[in-house]
Design a protein around this nucleic acid. Structure first.
Lengths: 154, 154
DNA sequence: CCAATTAAAGAAAATTTATCTACATGGACA
DNA sequence: TGTCCATGTAGATAAATTTTCTTTAATTGG
Protein backbone atom coordinates (compact mmCIF):
# COMPACT_ATOMS: atom_id res chain seq x y z
CA UNK A 1 0.00 0.00 0.00
CA UNK A 2 2.12 2.82 -1.31
CA UNK A 3 1.58 6.22 -2.81
CA UNK A 4 0.30 4.78 -6.11
CA UNK A 5 -2.31 2.66 -4.37
CA UNK A 6 -3.47 5.69 -2.43
CA UNK A 7 -3.81 7.69 -5.60
CA UNK A 8 -5.82 4.91 -7.20
CA UNK A 9 -8.12 4.74 -4.19
CA UNK A 10 -8.42 8.51 -4.13
CA UNK A 11 -9.52 8.64 -7.75
CA UNK A 12 -11.88 5.66 -7.60
CA UNK A 13 -13.53 7.02 -4.47
CA UNK A 14 -14.38 10.16 -6.42
CA UNK A 15 -15.31 8.54 -9.72
CA UNK A 16 -15.08 4.90 -10.67
CA UNK A 17 -16.56 5.40 -14.13
CA UNK A 18 -13.34 6.71 -15.63
CA UNK A 19 -11.43 4.51 -18.03
CA UNK A 20 -8.23 2.74 -17.15
CA UNK A 21 -6.43 5.06 -19.55
CA UNK A 22 -7.59 8.16 -17.69
CA UNK A 23 -6.97 6.65 -14.29
CA UNK A 24 -3.45 5.51 -15.06
CA UNK A 25 -2.63 8.93 -16.41
CA UNK A 26 -3.86 10.66 -13.25
CA UNK A 27 -2.07 8.17 -11.04
CA UNK A 28 1.18 8.38 -12.97
CA UNK A 29 1.49 4.75 -13.93
CA UNK A 30 1.03 2.91 -17.18
CA UNK A 31 -2.10 0.85 -17.65
CA UNK A 32 -0.78 -2.58 -16.79
CA UNK A 33 0.63 -1.92 -13.30
CA UNK A 34 -2.37 0.30 -12.59
CA UNK A 35 -4.73 -2.48 -13.57
CA UNK A 36 -2.77 -5.02 -11.53
CA UNK A 37 -3.02 -2.81 -8.46
CA UNK A 38 -6.77 -2.43 -8.83
CA UNK A 39 -7.15 -6.20 -9.06
CA UNK A 40 -5.03 -6.54 -5.93
CA UNK A 41 -6.99 -3.94 -3.99
CA UNK A 42 -10.23 -5.68 -4.91
CA UNK A 43 -8.90 -9.09 -3.97
CA UNK A 44 -7.64 -7.75 -0.64
CA UNK A 45 -11.07 -6.26 -0.01
CA UNK A 46 -9.81 -2.71 0.31
CA UNK A 47 -12.20 -1.83 -2.51
CA UNK A 48 -15.49 -3.25 -1.24
CA UNK A 49 -17.76 -2.46 -4.14
CA UNK A 50 -18.64 0.04 -6.83
CA UNK A 51 -21.99 1.72 -6.61
CA UNK A 52 -24.09 4.48 -8.14
CA UNK A 53 -25.04 7.33 -5.82
CA UNK A 54 -28.46 8.87 -6.37
CA UNK A 55 -29.75 12.37 -5.80
CA UNK A 56 -31.99 11.98 -2.75
CA UNK A 57 -34.17 14.92 -3.76
CA UNK A 58 -34.72 13.38 -7.20
CA UNK A 59 -36.03 10.17 -5.65
CA UNK A 60 -38.25 12.10 -3.26
CA UNK A 61 -36.22 11.69 -0.09
CA UNK A 62 -36.08 15.17 1.33
CA UNK A 63 -35.99 14.37 5.02
CA UNK A 64 -33.05 12.92 6.94
CA UNK A 65 -33.71 11.90 10.53
CA UNK A 66 -31.32 10.67 13.19
CA UNK A 67 -33.14 8.47 15.66
CA UNK A 68 -31.64 7.95 19.09
CA UNK A 69 -32.85 4.79 20.75
CA UNK A 70 -32.69 3.66 24.36
CA UNK A 71 -33.76 0.33 25.72
CA UNK A 72 -34.04 -1.43 29.03
CA UNK A 73 -34.40 -4.85 27.49
CA UNK A 74 -30.86 -6.04 27.06
CA UNK A 75 -31.75 -9.52 25.86
CA UNK A 76 -30.84 -11.27 22.60
CA UNK A 77 -34.43 -11.49 21.35
CA UNK A 78 -34.94 -7.79 21.52
CA UNK A 79 -31.76 -7.05 19.60
CA UNK A 80 -32.60 -9.63 16.94
CA UNK A 81 -35.96 -8.08 16.22
CA UNK A 82 -34.46 -4.60 15.95
CA UNK A 83 -31.62 -5.82 13.73
CA UNK A 84 -34.08 -7.65 11.51
CA UNK A 85 -36.20 -4.56 11.18
CA UNK A 86 -33.19 -2.42 10.29
CA UNK A 87 -32.00 -4.99 7.81
CA UNK A 88 -35.25 -4.94 5.88
CA UNK A 89 -36.22 -1.29 6.24
CA UNK A 90 -34.73 0.51 3.22
CA UNK A 91 -35.32 3.86 4.94
CA UNK A 92 -32.64 2.97 7.48
CA UNK A 93 -29.34 3.61 5.75
CA UNK A 94 -27.13 3.52 8.84
CA UNK A 95 -27.42 1.78 12.17
CA UNK A 96 -24.94 1.91 15.04
CA UNK A 97 -24.63 0.58 18.54
CA UNK A 98 -23.41 3.50 20.56
CA UNK A 99 -21.66 4.30 23.77
CA UNK A 100 -23.03 6.89 26.16
CA UNK A 101 -26.59 8.12 26.49
CA UNK A 102 -28.16 6.55 23.41
CA UNK A 103 -27.90 2.80 22.97
CA UNK A 104 -28.53 2.77 19.22
CA UNK A 105 -28.48 5.38 16.49
CA UNK A 106 -30.37 5.22 13.22
CA UNK A 107 -30.06 7.37 10.15
CA UNK A 108 -33.37 7.37 8.29
CA UNK A 109 -34.29 8.71 4.84
CA UNK A 110 -37.90 9.54 4.05
CA UNK A 111 -39.78 12.03 1.85
CA UNK A 112 -41.42 14.11 4.58
CA UNK A 113 -42.79 14.26 8.11
CA UNK A 114 -45.83 12.24 7.23
CA UNK A 115 -43.70 9.42 5.87
CA UNK A 116 -41.48 9.63 8.92
CA UNK A 117 -44.45 9.33 11.21
CA UNK A 118 -45.49 6.21 9.36
CA UNK A 119 -41.97 4.81 9.66
CA UNK A 120 -41.87 5.73 13.34
CA UNK A 121 -45.04 3.79 14.07
CA UNK A 122 -43.66 0.75 12.31
CA UNK A 123 -40.43 1.06 14.29
CA UNK A 124 -41.95 1.24 17.75
CA UNK A 125 -44.39 -1.55 16.93
CA UNK A 126 -41.44 -3.78 16.20
CA UNK A 127 -39.70 -3.65 19.58
CA UNK A 128 -39.90 -1.89 22.93
CA UNK A 129 -37.83 1.20 23.60
CA UNK A 130 -37.50 3.09 26.83
CA UNK A 131 -36.80 6.23 24.83
CA UNK A 132 -36.94 7.27 21.18
CA UNK A 133 -35.73 10.72 20.25
CA UNK A 134 -35.82 11.98 16.67
CA UNK A 135 -33.45 14.67 15.41
CA UNK A 136 -34.30 16.21 12.07
CA UNK A 137 -31.75 17.48 9.58
CA UNK A 138 -32.59 20.96 8.35
CA UNK A 139 -29.79 21.09 5.83
CA UNK A 140 -27.17 18.70 4.51
CA UNK A 141 -23.93 20.66 4.53
CA UNK A 142 -21.75 17.72 3.50
CA UNK A 143 -22.24 14.13 2.48
CA UNK A 144 -19.43 12.04 1.16
CA UNK A 145 -18.61 8.38 0.77
CA UNK A 146 -14.93 9.29 0.42
CA UNK A 147 -12.92 8.30 3.45
CA UNK A 148 -9.58 9.82 4.44
CA UNK A 149 -6.55 7.95 3.13
CA UNK A 150 -4.09 9.79 5.34
CA UNK A 151 -4.21 7.21 8.12
CA UNK A 152 -3.27 4.15 6.07
CA UNK A 153 -0.47 2.31 7.82
CA UNK A 154 2.90 2.35 6.08
CA UNK B 1 -39.58 7.32 -14.19
CA UNK B 2 -41.27 3.96 -14.51
CA UNK B 3 -40.71 0.43 -13.28
CA UNK B 4 -37.75 -0.09 -15.63
CA UNK B 5 -35.97 3.01 -14.37
CA UNK B 6 -36.50 1.88 -10.81
CA UNK B 7 -35.02 -1.52 -11.57
CA UNK B 8 -32.02 0.11 -13.20
CA UNK B 9 -31.49 2.35 -10.18
CA UNK B 10 -31.96 -0.58 -7.84
CA UNK B 11 -29.28 -2.61 -9.59
CA UNK B 12 -26.80 0.23 -10.04
CA UNK B 13 -27.15 1.23 -6.41
CA UNK B 14 -26.01 -2.26 -5.46
CA UNK B 15 -23.32 -2.71 -8.08
CA UNK B 16 -22.42 -0.41 -10.93
CA UNK B 17 -19.57 -2.59 -12.16
CA UNK B 18 -21.86 -5.03 -13.92
CA UNK B 19 -21.95 -4.97 -17.69
CA UNK B 20 -24.79 -3.53 -19.70
CA UNK B 21 -25.56 -7.06 -20.85
CA UNK B 22 -26.04 -8.31 -17.29
CA UNK B 23 -27.96 -5.22 -16.26
CA UNK B 24 -30.34 -5.29 -19.20
CA UNK B 25 -31.04 -8.95 -18.53
CA UNK B 26 -31.87 -8.30 -14.88
CA UNK B 27 -34.00 -5.31 -15.77
CA UNK B 28 -35.82 -7.09 -18.56
CA UNK B 29 -34.90 -4.80 -21.43
CA UNK B 30 -32.50 -5.14 -24.31
CA UNK B 31 -29.22 -3.29 -24.16
CA UNK B 32 -30.03 -0.19 -26.17
CA UNK B 33 -33.11 1.07 -24.31
CA UNK B 34 -31.42 0.16 -21.06
CA UNK B 35 -28.36 2.19 -22.02
CA UNK B 36 -30.49 5.14 -23.12
CA UNK B 37 -32.31 5.15 -19.79
CA UNK B 38 -29.04 5.22 -17.89
CA UNK B 39 -27.88 8.17 -19.98
CA UNK B 40 -31.17 9.93 -19.26
CA UNK B 41 -30.98 9.27 -15.54
CA UNK B 42 -27.43 10.64 -15.50
CA UNK B 43 -28.38 13.73 -17.48
CA UNK B 44 -31.34 14.37 -15.19
CA UNK B 45 -29.03 14.08 -12.22
CA UNK B 46 -30.91 11.19 -10.63
CA UNK B 47 -27.67 9.24 -10.81
CA UNK B 48 -25.20 11.65 -9.22
CA UNK B 49 -22.00 9.69 -9.61
CA UNK B 50 -20.39 6.28 -9.53
CA UNK B 51 -17.89 5.62 -6.80
CA UNK B 52 -15.81 2.89 -5.22
CA UNK B 53 -16.59 2.12 -1.58
CA UNK B 54 -13.65 1.16 0.59
CA UNK B 55 -13.37 -1.10 3.59
CA UNK B 56 -12.90 1.35 6.45
CA UNK B 57 -11.00 -1.19 8.54
CA UNK B 58 -8.60 -1.82 5.66
CA UNK B 59 -7.71 1.86 5.46
CA UNK B 60 -7.31 2.07 9.22
CA UNK B 61 -10.53 3.87 10.11
CA UNK B 62 -11.90 1.86 12.98
CA UNK B 63 -13.65 4.61 14.89
CA UNK B 64 -16.86 6.38 13.91
CA UNK B 65 -17.85 9.38 16.01
CA UNK B 66 -20.99 11.48 15.90
CA UNK B 67 -20.26 14.98 17.15
CA UNK B 68 -23.11 17.12 18.38
CA UNK B 69 -22.34 20.82 18.25
CA UNK B 70 -24.03 23.76 19.90
CA UNK B 71 -23.21 27.40 19.40
CA UNK B 72 -24.30 30.75 20.70
CA UNK B 73 -22.64 32.69 17.90
CA UNK B 74 -25.29 32.79 15.22
CA UNK B 75 -23.36 35.02 12.84
CA UNK B 76 -22.28 34.38 9.23
CA UNK B 77 -18.55 34.45 10.01
CA UNK B 78 -18.80 31.66 12.51
CA UNK B 79 -20.74 29.44 10.13
CA UNK B 80 -18.31 30.11 7.30
CA UNK B 81 -15.33 29.02 9.35
CA UNK B 82 -17.07 25.84 10.44
CA UNK B 83 -18.24 25.06 6.90
CA UNK B 84 -14.75 25.65 5.56
CA UNK B 85 -13.29 23.36 8.15
CA UNK B 86 -15.81 20.62 7.35
CA UNK B 87 -15.20 21.05 3.64
CA UNK B 88 -11.49 20.45 3.98
CA UNK B 89 -11.44 17.90 6.78
CA UNK B 90 -11.57 14.47 5.12
CA UNK B 91 -12.44 12.87 8.46
CA UNK B 92 -15.81 14.60 8.33
CA UNK B 93 -17.92 12.52 5.98
CA UNK B 94 -21.30 14.00 6.90
CA UNK B 95 -22.36 17.37 8.23
CA UNK B 96 -25.90 18.50 9.01
CA UNK B 97 -27.63 21.54 10.39
CA UNK B 98 -30.17 20.15 12.81
CA UNK B 99 -33.36 21.09 14.54
CA UNK B 100 -33.75 20.62 18.27
CA UNK B 101 -31.06 20.41 20.91
CA UNK B 102 -27.96 20.16 18.75
CA UNK B 103 -27.32 22.86 16.18
CA UNK B 104 -24.97 20.82 13.99
CA UNK B 105 -24.15 17.16 13.66
CA UNK B 106 -20.91 15.71 12.33
CA UNK B 107 -20.05 12.17 11.38
CA UNK B 108 -16.33 11.66 11.76
CA UNK B 109 -14.09 8.76 10.69
CA UNK B 110 -10.74 8.25 12.41
CA UNK B 111 -8.47 5.31 13.29
CA UNK B 112 -8.74 5.49 17.06
CA UNK B 113 -9.29 7.63 20.14
CA UNK B 114 -5.89 9.26 19.88
CA UNK B 115 -6.60 10.37 16.33
CA UNK B 116 -10.03 11.58 17.39
CA UNK B 117 -8.54 13.64 20.17
CA UNK B 118 -6.24 15.25 17.64
CA UNK B 119 -9.16 15.94 15.34
CA UNK B 120 -11.19 17.31 18.24
CA UNK B 121 -8.49 19.82 19.14
CA UNK B 122 -8.31 21.00 15.57
CA UNK B 123 -12.09 21.34 15.47
CA UNK B 124 -12.48 23.45 18.59
CA UNK B 125 -9.53 25.63 17.63
CA UNK B 126 -11.35 26.50 14.42
CA UNK B 127 -14.49 28.03 15.91
CA UNK B 128 -16.22 28.59 19.22
CA UNK B 129 -18.83 26.14 20.45
CA UNK B 130 -20.99 26.45 23.52
CA UNK B 131 -21.15 22.66 23.67
CA UNK B 132 -19.45 19.75 21.93
CA UNK B 133 -20.62 16.25 22.72
CA UNK B 134 -19.02 13.20 21.12
CA UNK B 135 -20.91 9.92 20.68
CA UNK B 136 -18.82 6.91 19.78
CA UNK B 137 -20.02 4.03 17.64
CA UNK B 138 -19.27 0.69 19.25
CA UNK B 139 -20.49 -1.34 16.31
CA UNK B 140 -21.72 -0.62 12.82
CA UNK B 141 -24.85 -2.72 12.38
CA UNK B 142 -25.73 -1.34 8.97
CA UNK B 143 -24.20 1.02 6.48
CA UNK B 144 -25.64 1.47 3.03
CA UNK B 145 -25.53 4.03 0.27
CA UNK B 146 -28.68 2.49 -1.19
CA UNK B 147 -31.69 4.69 -0.74
CA UNK B 148 -35.30 3.49 -0.85
CA UNK B 149 -36.96 3.76 -4.26
CA UNK B 150 -40.46 3.16 -2.97
CA UNK B 151 -41.25 6.83 -2.56
CA UNK B 152 -40.55 7.95 -6.12
CA UNK B 153 -43.49 10.01 -7.39
CA UNK B 154 -45.60 8.54 -10.21
C1' DC C 1 -62.45 1.94 -35.49
C1' DC C 2 -58.74 2.97 -38.45
C1' DA C 3 -54.84 5.44 -40.21
C1' DA C 4 -51.07 8.57 -39.00
C1' DT C 5 -47.82 9.90 -35.85
C1' DT C 6 -44.83 9.41 -32.14
C1' DA C 7 -42.10 7.07 -28.78
C1' DA C 8 -39.70 3.45 -27.26
C1' DA C 9 -37.70 -1.16 -28.02
C1' DG C 10 -34.84 -4.40 -30.49
C1' DA C 11 -31.01 -6.03 -33.65
C1' DA C 12 -26.76 -5.54 -35.48
C1' DA C 13 -22.61 -3.32 -36.53
C1' DA C 14 -18.82 -0.25 -35.31
C1' DT C 15 -15.94 1.64 -32.08
C1' DT C 16 -13.82 1.89 -27.85
C1' DT C 17 -12.23 -0.11 -23.71
C1' DA C 18 -10.86 -3.67 -20.70
C1' DT C 19 -8.38 -7.75 -19.81
C1' DC C 20 -4.56 -10.60 -19.97
C1' DT C 21 0.01 -12.25 -21.72
C1' DA C 22 4.82 -12.00 -22.94
C1' DC C 23 8.87 -9.93 -22.66
C1' DA C 24 12.26 -6.14 -21.92
C1' DT C 25 13.94 -2.62 -18.64
C1' DG C 26 15.52 -0.55 -14.48
C1' DG C 27 16.04 0.02 -9.57
C1' DA C 28 16.72 -2.03 -4.81
C1' DC C 29 19.28 -4.95 -2.08
C1' DA C 30 21.97 -8.74 -0.25
C1' DT D 1 27.24 -8.86 -9.50
C1' DG D 2 23.16 -11.33 -9.63
C1' DT D 3 18.54 -11.80 -8.03
C1' DC D 4 14.09 -10.11 -7.18
C1' DC D 5 10.27 -6.90 -7.89
C1' DA D 6 7.69 -3.87 -10.13
C1' DT D 7 7.13 -1.08 -14.13
C1' DG D 8 6.74 -0.23 -19.16
C1' DT D 9 5.76 -1.46 -23.92
C1' DA D 10 3.42 -3.97 -27.12
C1' DG D 11 0.00 -6.63 -28.64
C1' DA D 12 -3.80 -10.09 -28.93
C1' DT D 13 -8.16 -11.23 -27.57
C1' DA D 14 -12.38 -10.59 -25.51
C1' DA D 15 -15.82 -7.75 -23.95
C1' DA D 16 -18.20 -3.65 -23.29
C1' DT D 17 -19.98 0.71 -24.95
C1' DT D 18 -22.05 3.54 -28.37
C1' DT D 19 -24.07 4.45 -32.88
C1' DT D 20 -27.09 3.40 -36.64
C1' DC D 21 -30.94 1.51 -38.41
C1' DT D 22 -35.18 -1.29 -38.20
C1' DT D 23 -39.26 -2.86 -35.92
C1' DT D 24 -42.76 -2.85 -32.66
C1' DA D 25 -46.01 -0.73 -29.65
C1' DA D 26 -48.68 3.00 -28.00
C1' DT D 27 -51.31 7.33 -28.87
C1' DT D 28 -54.04 10.59 -31.06
C1' DG D 29 -57.14 12.74 -34.46
C1' DG D 30 -60.49 12.06 -37.72
Amino acid sequence: MDSFDKKILFELQRDCSISLAQLSERVGLSQTPCWRRIQQLEKQGVIRKRVALLDTEAVNLGLTVFVHLKTNQHNPGWLTSVTDFAEHAPEITEFYRMSGETDYLLKVLVPDMKAYDNFYKRLISQAGFSDVSSSFAMEQMKYSTEVPLDYIHK
